[in-house]
Nucleic acid binder design. Structure first.
Length: 417
RNA sequence: GUGGGUGUAGCUCAGGUGGUAGAGCACUUGGUUGUGGCCCAAGUGGUCGCGUGUUCAAGUCACGUCACCCACCCCA
């Protein structure tokens, strides 16, 4: 029989890696709670049209990166490639806006993109998402970034950098796009790389993001986005920058920061790490004021970010194995019963530990206890049973003493505090 | 979708010019009729990714195929 193997780009996560996820999630929940956010759980499967309409039919994500398939009745479904579309859909469908002006929502879970896997990129990956719906105030942008910053710092990330840009709005961006197109069409085609020649027609803004030196030289002479921002966008961007400044958040303006989802406007940002390979963005997001309306909802604004857990954990490295408080080594059949009952009592008091039921020698049981890094081994032999005691061996000092079973709890050394 | 790299024990890897497999770690047991970590000894464990070909003989050579990794692209 052939073994069934997992599919490309998916992974099985065992402890201690799985513990790292839990810990990171817990930190996010704690910070987000303090910022007044509420958790929203949305489906991971949606109608394909939702993503096509929100992310944009011409984007790479929709064109070639989605897990899309027909259901049993022939309707096209897609495993979500990002969270915002589903959150927006849920917000509209449940008319959340009718009972409150502002909604602060977060959601944590798996996303799916059909890409070639590499370091920091798998086909199923875990994201932490936060969205603020219903406010155009630049203070909202700043607050969201402050929260992201606070979460990342709390989780222990030091060397990350924040890049910021404004993409303008439907009033001013068309002028800029036209200027870019005009500029590119006036350039010598030979000066651009083949990709950029294609981009200059399909998605001119992307040319600004090209890493080829000759393209960079060319685009340096091109129109600058910030000079095309309308008054409102300029003020908005200015305020966001000022608020970040007075809050002590370090950031860098990156006028070439173009994001791959069509719904973004005005504020966009990415958080980058230098230490995790080519896929360096650990978080990213921006404002999407037109999205809800485009999805058939009310004309309300929104802003949000997504945080890639695998990429963050790449920086954090391996978590230590969890330790336990006790390991019970019974030396007879009867002792296994007593051991089971004692373990149950200790666990009821909040301690963690195992009982060995395999009937192995004391020597191998102690080896096992040591391997598990248990703080103490409780030996239950014939002599102990007749006296209703246990032999308590402290595994770090090696000292042991015989104590009464009812005194166990107070006598145990603790592995963790 | 396009490149490049790697597939040998549970893990990390050795195996000049072809002669059907090794180390370290891990695991099990023993060295102590009931005592871990260090040490010592023995033991378990391999269709050498898979297939075809060349050959008396293939882990080693050729072709194909699959998987994984890294990068491009794109993004969390």
């Amino acid at each position: 029989m052939d073994k069934i193997k997992k599919i490309k780009g998916f992974s099985d996560v065992f402890s201690p890696r799985s513990d790292s996820y839990t810990l990171l999630e817990a930190k996010a929940r704690d910070i987000f709670f303090r910022y007044g956010f509420e958790e929203l759980r949305v489906p991971i499967l949606e109608k394909t049209e939702l993503f096509a309409r929100s992310i944009g039919t011409e984007t790479d994500i929709v064109q070639k990166e989605m897990f899309t398939f027909p259901d049993r009745k022939g309707r096209s479904l897609t495993l979500r490639p990002e969270a915002t579309a589903g959150v927006a859909r849920a917000y509209i469908e449940n008319k959340i806006y009718s009972s409150r002006d502002i909604s602060k929502l977060y959601t944590i879970g798996p996303m799916f993109r059909y890409e070639r896997p590499q370091k920091g990129r798998q086909r199923q990956f875990q994201q932490i998402n936060a969205e603020i719906l219903g406010s155009t105030a630049p203070e909202t942008d700043a607050e969201l970034l402050l929260m992201l910053n606070s979460f990342l710092r709390d989780a222990g990330f030091q060397k990350l950098s924040l890049e910021l840009n404004s993409l303008g709005c439907p009033q001013c961006r068309p002028d800029f796009l036209k200027a870019v197109s005009d500029f590119l069409s006036r350039q010598d085609e030979e000066a651009l790389c083949p990709d950029c020649r294609r981009r200059s027609r399909s998605n001119p803004l992307r040319v600004y993001d090209c890493k080829i030196n000759t393209c960079r030289e060319q685009i340096k002479k091109g129109p600058v986005l910030t000079e095309y921002l309308c008054g409102d966008c300029r003020d908005h961007f200015q305020t966001v920058k000022r608020l970040l400044g007075i809050s002590g958040v370090q950031y860098r303006i990156n006028p070439n920061l173009v994001r791959g989802l069509d719904y973004y406007q005005r504020t966009t940002f990415e958080v980058l790490s230098e230490d995790i390979g080519a896929q360096s963005a650990v978080a990213g997001g921006g404002r999407y004021d037109g999205l809800l309306k485009d999805l058939g909802g009310p004309d309300l604004p929104g802003i949000g970010f997504a945080c890639g857990m695998e990429r963050l954990l790449l920086i954090l490295g391996e978590a230590p194995n969890p330790q336990s408080d006790f390991f019970i080594a019974p030396l007879s059949q009867k002792a296994k019963e007593i051991g089971l009952l004692l373990a149950c009592q200790l666990r009821a008091k909040g301690l963690r530990g195992d009982v060995a039921f395999e009937g192995k020698s004391l020597k191998s049981q102690l080896r096992q206890a040591n391997k598990q890094q248990a703080a103490a081994c409780l030996i239950l032999g014939e002599e102990e049973l007749t006296r209703s005691t246990v032999l308590l061996k402290d595994l770090s000092s090696g000292e042991q003493s015989e104590i009464r079973q009812e005194d166990l709890l107070t006598a145990l050394p603790l592995s963790r505090q």
